[in-house]
Nucleic acid binder design. Structure first.
Lengths: 205, 205
DNA sequence: TGCAAAACGTCAATGAATGCAAAATTACAT
DNA sequence: ATGTAATTTTGCATTCATTGACGTTTTGCA
């Protein structure tokens, strides 16, 4: 039933891909604000108006693989082994969906450049946080379903606490200018702190 | 030095106040998207262009008291008693700055309406999350300063974990349609989970 | 009073986003 | 192959937020 891409679908796919690549290239070359939607559309040979049938807004194009990342995450949660501790499960979700290059080669190709881009454009930061927030709500539902022992509030707290810790830690590291190596270690530490709780933090001397 | 409001400052204050009240009234009456900046400016008898010297953007006006909330929070962190556990300190920060009516009467007056407004307008949700994120980074610095036993990563994880848990839990409650009473209890639970860690969650039956 | 700074306003322009109706393209059945 | 229905694309007009440049008005202060 779903095997047939069909000419129409294939063409759309190609156009979409072209838009993503063109947009990211332009953003890298001239900066996000200096790039107009009309220019992006031109790279894929479509009318400006048509751009908006592929993406709801100019900033959406930067987060083209969000949906597939979320799906991957929900899938992992759904495959939870009964009895598996929530902490372990979420740990897997983190590095297999958030930090893995989910979307084929494209995601890997744009990875670092995109990170820098988002960090430098306030509008993109806001969009990312909004998407991430929405994702957390969906993960909450998935977790609640997969773990009957958790009520909705507990599931939400688990997701929010872990994701929140990581997100803020990563930002703090970037702000400080840490290398990826160091940032990665910080993420591990953040994960541990969320899992073991604030009370596990060092006490005053 | 700072005692003299001066005519100029007082006038600005009054205009600012008028803009806030006018804007929130219009948003409540006709909705956020249906209200133009020109209309908001008109309620305070200023030119449209001038609006942007009071607020950087249309959505900024909704978060007029964010700055003062942050300042309150940083202040509380700065007054930490040496030896006070981080968890206790952050608990105080949460209910004395985030959930208190910081900004005089105005904040109280618009409180519930504003919450509903933000929840119903995606652009405002995104803006709120962005501001909250920025606030967390500043709280991280403050906490790191006030608690020499915590390195920057630990401070960031503490703030992110606690705030993240609460934010997601509140959203989940609102989505479910909980009453304020219930939501409040959920916030307490979220706080406890962040403090005690994900491992404190119930185990599978 | 008179000057410099701070605010304000006018004008014009840019660019994102959306609604609409016509034109082009694709899918599908005959 | 052909006609028809469904889907996409497009051009066009419009609305509106946001910004820059520049002149005018107010206010603070010497």
């Amino acid at each position: 039933m779903t095997s047939d891409p069909g000419l129409r679908q294939r063409k759309k796919m190609r156009t979409r891909q072209a838009l993503i690549e063109g947009a990211l290239r332009l953003f890298a070359e001239k900066g996000y604000d200096q790039t107009t939607v009309a220019e992006i559309a031109a790279t894929a040979d479509i009318a400006t108006r048509t751009f908006f049938s592929y993406f709801d807004s100019k900033d959406d194009i930067v987060f083209f693989d969000d949906r597939s990342r979320l799906e991957r995450a929900v899938e992992i949660i759904g495959e939870r082994q009964p009895g598996e501790p929530v902490a372990d499960l979420l740990r897997r979700v983190i590095d297999q969906s958030v930090f893995a290059d989910t979307d084929s080669e494209l995601a890997r190709k744009v990875g670092p450049a995109r990170t820098r881009l988002i960090a430098s454009v306030p509008a993109l930061q806001a969009r990312e946080l909004h998407l991430l927030f929405d994702i957390q709500l969906q993960l909450t539902e998935a977790l609640h379903l997969a773990c009957p022992e958790l009520d909705l509030v507990e599931a939400a707290a688990a997701v929010g606490s872990l994701v929140g810790a990581i997100k803020v830690v990563v930002a703090a590291c970037q702000k400080r200018g840490d290398r990826p190596e160091q940032t990665y270690k910080a993420v591990q530490r953040a994960t541990d702190i969320a899992i073991d709780g604030l009370n596990s933090l060092p006490r005053p001397a």
